[in-house]
């Protein structure tokens, strides 16, 4: 599966379009991480636990999107966009969407 966030795949030709595909995941941080983050908040700086959590969540969203594209018979997803939405206290939704295509 080739993934790009531009309108085409460089060096390849798009032969078929399958429309949009998307994947999303809602993640909550567990209490231990929340506690550590609130301690870290005193001195500021990077919250490694959250960075990792969001990175994993985003990979999961991309994974689901690729799965959907594969079911349609696509071998690439172009023009991918990411988005984040906080839907409730302590939970974040991460989504990825793009256009499924077949390239040669």
């Amino acid at each position: 599966m080739i993934l790009t966030n531009i309108q085409s795949v460089p060096g390849k030709k798009i032969v078929e379009h399958f429309g949009i595909v998307q994947g999303s995941t809602v993640r909550a941080k567990h209490a231990g991480r929340d506690f550590m983050a609130s301690l870290k908040n005193i001195i500021g700086g990077e919250l490694k636990g959250y960075t990792q959590l969001l990175q994993e969540a985003r990979e999961e969203a991309v994974e689901r999107m690729s799965e959907q594209a594969k079911q349609l018979g696509a071998n690439a997803v172009v023009n991918i966009r990411f988005g984040t939405a906080s839907i409730a206290q302590g939970a974040a939704e991460l989504f990825a969407y793009g256009t499924a295509v077949r390239v040669e």
Binding site: L3, T4, A37, L54
Partner: peptide, 25 residues
């Protein structure tokens, strides 16, 4: 969005980097 001549590009893939940062009191 860059355009390349035919046969110039071998492969392409997505890359990303993220960071969560908080401010001090």
């Amino acid at each position: 969005e860059a355009y390349f001549a035919d046969g110039r590009v071998k492969e392409s893939f997505m890359v990303s980097g993220s960071v969560v940062i908080s401010m001090d009191y």
